Amino acid sequence: MLKKLFGKSAGQAAQNKEHNLQRIFPIIKAQLGGGTSAGLENISQPISEHLVDNLHIYFAEDTGSQFEYLNEESLKDLQKNIAQIKEIALANLENYANKTGISIEGDDNLQMVKLDRNLEASLILMESLWSQVLAKYNDNAIVAIPSRELLIIGPASNSTSLSQLTQGANDLFNSGEYKLSPKVFLKRPGAKIELQG
């Protein structure tokens, strides 16, 4: 599956077909002006949920070569609501991450969380990962997701971490292909992600 997931295109809306619930994942996208997310301009009514700032969670089925985004028609086909789809997608992400393996590399200031170069940004939704990270830091975490394949973290009370992450997130966002956000976010135990500062 790692080979199949690498380098997926944004895809299209899933149309009247058999869906494989075990291949539905949460995908983080930045919303552009006018309420459209990058790469989804031609997809009819993709379902989404607001995450933070201009970031939204979309739900897409991994077809092997691309992600097909679920829309209102998909929900009818699946006989599910968005809350049920979100629960399924988060469980699939956790299973996939556990099977594939997450690696965390870096120094005392900043670490990069790696999975498969497609779903790193989605790991921001994985509470089991945050439980481990926050326990290791004994602190809140600062977080950046400048593009879909980058999740960078550091301890929130470390001023060097914040300075490096603020600059790095902006630089990586400006040079990234699948842009999400140049901003730094904060993760507290048991809380939703929020803007830092």
Rank of each mutant, 00 (worst) to 15 (best):
E18I: 11
I88S: 01
T100K: 03
P189M: 08
I152C: 02
S175E: 14
L55N: 03
K4F: 11
P26Y: 07
K76A: 06
A169L: 06
N16I: 09
F59T: 06
F185N: 13
E149W: 05
G168I: 06
I27Y: 08
Q22Y: 14
L123R: 04
Q196L: 12
K29R: 10
I27Q: 14
F67G: 00
I145C: 04
E177M: 09
T160A: 14
P189R: 07
A38E: 15
L134F: 14
F25N: 00
S103H: 01
I104H: 10
S9D: 12
G168F: 02
P182G: 01
K4L: 09
Q12T: 13
E127I: 08
S9V: 10
N20H: 09
Q22R: 03
N109T: 09
T36L: 14
E127M: 08
L21R: 14
K80Q: 15
K99E: 13
Q15M: 08
E49A: 05
S161Q: 02
F59S: 12
P155S: 11
V113T: 00
A83N: 05
Q84E: 15
Q84N: 01
K187M: 14
N20P: 03
M112Q: 11
P146R: 00
M112K: 13
A14G: 01
S122I: 06
E72Q: 08
L55C: 12
K80A: 07
K86Q: 11
D77I: 02
M112H: 12
A10Y: 09
Q167V: 00
D77T: 07
L93Q: 05
L115G: 03
S163K: 15
N54V: 13
S103M: 05
P189E: 11
I124C: 08
I28M: 02
M126H: 06
N54P: 07
